[in-house]
Design a protein around this nucleic acid. Structure first.
Length: 596
RNA sequence: GGGGUCGUAGUUCAGCUGGUUAGAACGCCGGCCUGUCACGCCGGAGGUCGCGAGUUCGAGUCUCGUCGGCCCCGCCA
């Protein structure tokens, strides 16, 4: 049976929000509007919890007060929209509800307008929902009514508001850059937009406004920022959406330290205002080299220990052939000591082996340190010297376990970095209330891509090399340092940036090293190189993942929780069902034919 | 592109080694109820077991395929 409500607001105006009434308003006539959370019908009295984003207030329908309103209230169901008018009264003392902010008062309804009926909601609108995510995303508007969803969006809004205020106070100007722009090589796959006016040609949606913000510096803007949507057509993860929001910043006449200083001020403010946490400045700095060697990653989570230990020297020429063999081939042997890890069962060790296998490790060796005895498949191959070196390097005690991975360094680092996180989480070493911010600095400029057989940028092609390394560029490119920096929060790269190349000759040299010759450079970046040639000032900046920041600061598990209308893992909007087919006529106009 | 996991009533789940009519809770519908706030009490409805093949006398259960959600690898300068 379809329920239809036909009342309109008419001349009623909302007096206050549902979460606001207090005892000081008792005796006043009030008009409230909102959604019916629940109805409790006692036959005589009917109670309705009226909800809006500010909270919940109880409204009472008493037939002795208004027969007509009471009669209408019988129709009310969950999530119906209504407006009520009546007298705010103090509740009888024994009926006060200390569980809600408005619990000392209630509205005695004299008149009600039923504004819109709701279908039966597929899941209850409660803070703790156990509804599946696909149901929640399909009915996102219902999910957003949950206080927790709202809290995520509010925190996000407060964050971007503080950012704008702070940067405004520091001389930054927010400038919008194009969404329809030019596809450039390097980086992620582009989202393309066909041009109707130029059939066969395409705009690309920006992966970031990188070149535009640099050109704004050439334009003399001096200090720019933008809170801007970016697009990357790659597969999704819990912390990756195809469209996401960056805080993009750029400053003129700066060295890395100047950028770091502005950012630290901003972060300190955000943590203080949003979380009540006083961060100590300056933030710790860690070289890329140290991050890789001690944590196996360029985004170390410093909230717990379990640092990597290098055994490569200790196992050179070892009887443990899987170790010595790897070392002979130029690989490394590294490991992690876990205090009290001796309790891991065989099954757990097998699971951990499978776990590191995801990252390419061919095995996970281990030694359990028991009193006077080393339990391990490799124990009998260990020499006395190796044993003492292991002890010295790990400072292991009885009851501990040491894990080893031997392979090429990339595999060892990725395996152990992820094993470290996995163990840290599983052993409860990570406090939810801790926040660790660290700058990772001194990145190399280039790395070698074995698959493409060429150098690629560690950061991006516009990052400036260290001046002292300029001579090495053509001779030993891999030893050239860069002016890049990342800000890492709890093991998540929340921001990354660099001081840029501002001279066209140097920019061309770097592009050349990346295998982009003068012709291609001219075609893809000609406009940019030309701009650099008209007096580009030294400049640098940084970009932050707003979604990731919001996720961490609100304690959400997924980026989807802090985005109003996120995409599913298959990049589908479950609410609108995008992407979808289009009319043949639209395709024809664009000069596009699809292949099946 | 690959690996894992899940898919049963509106929702969250149970359903054993394949075996009569697929269950529970919440929600929903009807009735009663003037101090509830997860109201209570009585009664009731509600299922293409994601979809399609296969094995079998017999499939929610086993096999294969397929679609979808989530997690991960690859990918993400």
């Amino acid at each position: 049976m379809e329920r239809v409500f036909t009342d309109h607001l008419g001349d009623w105006k909302r007096g206050c929000c549902c979460g606001e009434p207090r005892t000081d308003g008792v005796g006043r006539e009030l008009t409230l509007m909102g959604w019916a959370q629940t109805r409790r019908d006692h036959g005589g009295l009917i109670f309705v919890d009226l909800r809006d984003r500010t909270g919940i207030v109880q409204v009472v329908f008493n037939p002795e007060v208004s027969q007509a309103a009471h009669e209408k209230a019988k129709q009310i169901r969950s999530e119906d929209v209504l407006s009520v008018r009546g007298l705010l009264v103090r509740r009888p003392p024994e009926t006060v509800n200390p569980g809600i902010a408005t619990g000392e008062v209630e509205l005695v309804v004299r008149d009600v307008r039923l504004l819109n009926a709701s279908q039966v909601p597929p899941f209850p609108i409660e803070d703790e929902t156990d509804a599946n995510e696909n149901t929640r995303l399909k009915y996102r508007y219902l999910d957003l009514r949950r206080p927790q969803s709202l809290a995520h969006l509010l925190l996000r809004y407060r964050m971007t508001k503080k950012i704008r205020d702070y940067l405004d106070g520091h001389g930054f100007v927010e400038v919008e850059t194009p969404v329809l722009t030019k596809s450039t090589p390097e980086g992620a796959r582009d989202y393309l937009v066909p041009s109707r006016i130029y059939p066969g040609k395409f705009y690309a949606l920006p992966q970031s406004p990188q070149l535009f913000k640099q050109i704004l510096m050439v334009g003399g803007l001096d200090r720019y920022f933008q809170i801007v949507r970016c697009f990357r057509d790659e597969d999704l993860r819990a912390d990756r959406q195809p469209e996401f929001t960056q805080l993009d910043m750029e400053m003129s006449f700066v060295q890395p330290e100047d950028v770091l200083e502005v950012v630290e001020g901003l972060m300190t403010l955000l943590f203080k205002e949003l979380k009540g946490i006083e961060l100590r400045r300056p933030f710790p700095r860690m070289s890329w080299e140290e991050a890789m060697s001690r944590y196996g990653t360029d985004k170390p989570d410093l909230r717990f220990g379990l640092k990597l230990v290098d055994f490569s020297l200790a196992f050179k020429g070892s009887q443990v052939k899987v170790f010595s063999g790897v070392i002979e081939r130029g690989g490394v042997v590294k490991g992690i000591r876990v205090s009290g890890g001796g309790i891991f069962s065989r099954k757990e060790l097998d699971d951990l082996t499978t776990f590191v296998g995801q990252y390419g490790a061919k095995g996970l060796a281990w030694i359990k340190m028991a009193d006077g005895e080393w339990q391990s498949p490799i124990a009998k191959f260990l020499s006395e010297k190796e044993r003492s070196e292991i002890l010295e390097l790990t400072e292991a005690n009885s009851g501990d376990i040491i894990f080893f991975v031997a392979d090429e360094s990339k595999v060892v680092h990725e395996s152990l970095a992820n094993l470290r996180l996995h163990l840290g989480e599983r052993l409860g070493l990570i406090s939810e209330k801790d926040y660790s911010l660290v700058w990772v600095v001194d990145f190399p400029l280039l790395e070698y891509d074995a698959e493409e057989k060429r150098y690629i940028s560690v950061h991006h092609p516009f990052t400036a090399p260290l001046e002292k390394d300029l001579d090495l560029l053509e001779k030993e490119p891999l030893r050239v340092g860069s002016k890049a920096y990342d800000l890492v929060l709890n093991g998540v790269e929340v921001g990354g940036g660099s001081v840029r190349i501002h001279q066209p000759d140097l920019q061309k040299r770097i592009l050349g090293l990346l295998g982009i010759g003068p012709e291609e450079a001219e075609e893809k970046f000609g406009f940019f190189l030309e701009a650099l040639g008209f007096g580009a000032p030294p400049h640098g900046g940084i970009a932050f993942g707003i979604d990731r920041m919001a996720m961490i600061l609100s304690g959400a598990r997924s980026l989807r929780d802090v985005i109003a209308f996120p995409k599913s893992q298959r990049a589908v909007c479950l609410l609108t069902d995008a992407p979808s087919s289009v009319d043949a006529k639209q395709l024809k106009e664009l000069g596009i034919k699809t292949v099946d």
